[in-house]
C-alpha cells in the first residue's frame, strides 16, 4: 500500500506540471482555436534560456525575470509574424505553422547549446528527496505543484473577475460576436501567447531542474496534448483534472505494469487513456460539445 501511495502522490505532483503545460495550450486554444504544437519547444527554450543566463553569472531571480520578459516579447513577434497572416486558414495549416515554430525554437536551442554547453538549471532548489512518512518526494516536485496552483489560481481569477478575462471568454464563445462589440483579438492573442510563454518558463524551470535541459523536455511536453484532449480542448477545469489524472495513472501503470511487460508503458499510456475517454466522451471530459449545422 505504501508503494501505491508513493506512486500516486508522485504521479499527482508530476500531473500538476502536465496540467500547467496544458493550461498554456488551453489558453491559446480558447483565444485563437490554434493547438500550439510549439509549446514543448517553448518549454525547452525558456528553461534553457534561464539555465544559460545563470551559467553566465546572472543571479537566479534576475535570470527568471529576464527569461519571462523574452518569452513575452516572443509572443508579440508570434502574433505579428505568424498568427495574424494565417487568420481563417484551415486547421491543418495552423497546426503546421506551430510545428514550424517549434522546429525553429528547437533549432535555436541546439545552436545555442553548441555555444553554451549547459544542461542543468540550478535555481537553488535542494535535490535531496524529503521523507514524508515513508514516502520519498522530491522538493522540486512540491515547488512545481505550488507554482502550478498559483498560476491556475491567477488564471482563474483573471478569467472570472477581470475585463480581460471576460473578453477571453467572449472570444472563445464566438469570435465574430466578440469582435462586433469591440473586443481586440490581436491584444488578446498577445496576452494568451505571453501567458503561455510564462507558463512554459515555469514548466521549463521545474522540469529542467528535475531532469536536464535537453531535447527530452520538448518530448515530455507532448504528453500535455494527451492531457488537453482528455480534459477537453477549451476547458481550464479539464486541464487540471486531466493533468492530475494522467500524472497519477501513468505513474501507477508504470509502477505496476512495467515490471511485467519490461518497461516503456509511460511513453504511451497517457495517449491510450485519452483514446478510451474519447470513445465515451468525444469532446474530452469537460470540453464543450460542438453543435454543427449544414
Amino acid at each position: 500500500m505504501e508503494f501505491f501511495f508513493e506512486l500516486f502522490v508522485n504521479g499527482l505532483l508530476t500531473g500538476t506540471l502536465y496540467a500547467l503545460v496544458a493550461l498554456g495550450l488551453v489558453l491559446v486554444y480558447k483565444a485563437s482555436e490554434v493547438l500550439n504544437f510549439a509549446q514543448g519547444a517553448m518549454v525547452l527554450i525558456a528553461g534553457f534560456m534561464v539555465a544559460v543566463l545563470i551559467y553566465l553569472g546572472i543571479p537566479a531571480l534576475a535570470a527568471v525575470v529576464l527569461g519571462a520578459a523574452v518569452m513575452i516579447g516572443m509572443s508579440f513577434a508570434v502574433e505579428r509574424l505568424v498568427l495574424r497572416p494565417l487568420v481563417a486558414q484551415p486547421i491543418i495549416s495552423l497546426i503546421m505553422v506551430t510545428l514550424g515554430l517549434g522546429l525553429f525554437l528547437e533549432g535555436v536551442q541546439t545552436l545555442a547549446s553548441n555555444i553554451w554547453p549547459v544542461y542543468t538549471i540550478d535555481i537553488g532548489i535542494p535535490r535531496a528527496p524529503i521523507d514524508l512518512g515513508g514516502m520519498l518526494i522530491l522538493p522540486v516536485n512540491v515547488i512545481g505543484a505550488v507554482m502550478a496552483v498559483i498560476l491556475f489560481g491567477a488564471t482563474g481569477y483573471v478569467f472570472l473577475y477581470t475585463q480581460t478575462g471576460r473578453a477571453l471568454r467572449a472570444i472563445s464563445d464566438d469570435h465574430e460576436a466578440a469582435l462586433s462589440v469591440g473586443v481586440s483579438i490581436k491584444r488578446l492573442w498577445v496576452i494568451v501567447w505571453g501567458a503561455a510563454g510564462t507558463i512554459a518558463l515555469v514548466a521549463g524551470l521545474i522540469w529542467g531542474t528535475r531532469m536536464s535541459v535537453g531535447f527530452s523536455l520538448s518530448l515530455l511536453a507532448f504528453r500535455a496534448f494527451a492531457v488537453v484532449i482528455l480534459g477537453g480542448l477549451d476547458s481550464l477545469v479539464g486541464a487540471i483534472v486531466a493533468g492530475l489524472l494522467v500524472g497519477a495513472a501513468e505513474n501507477l501503470v508504470a509502477g505496476y505494469v512495467d515490471p511485467i511487460v519490461g518497461g516503456g508503458t509511460k511513453e504511451f499510456f497517457p495517449y491510450l487513456l485519452m483514446l478510451i475517454v474519447l470513445w465515451v466522451r468525444p469532446y474530452g471530459l469537460f470540453g464543450r460539445e460542438i453543435i454543427e449545422r449544414v
Partner: peptide
C-alpha cells in the same frame, strides 16, 4: 554536426512558417 543540425532545424522551421504565411 551540432551546429549544422541546429541551423538546419532553424531554417527549416522558418521556411515552413514563411511558406504558410505566403501561400497557405
Amino acid at each position: 554536426t551540432g551546429i549544422t543540425s541546429g541551423v538546419e532545424s532553424l531554417i527549416f522551421g522558418t521556411l515552413i512558417i514563411i511558406f504558410l504565411v505566403v501561400e497557405p
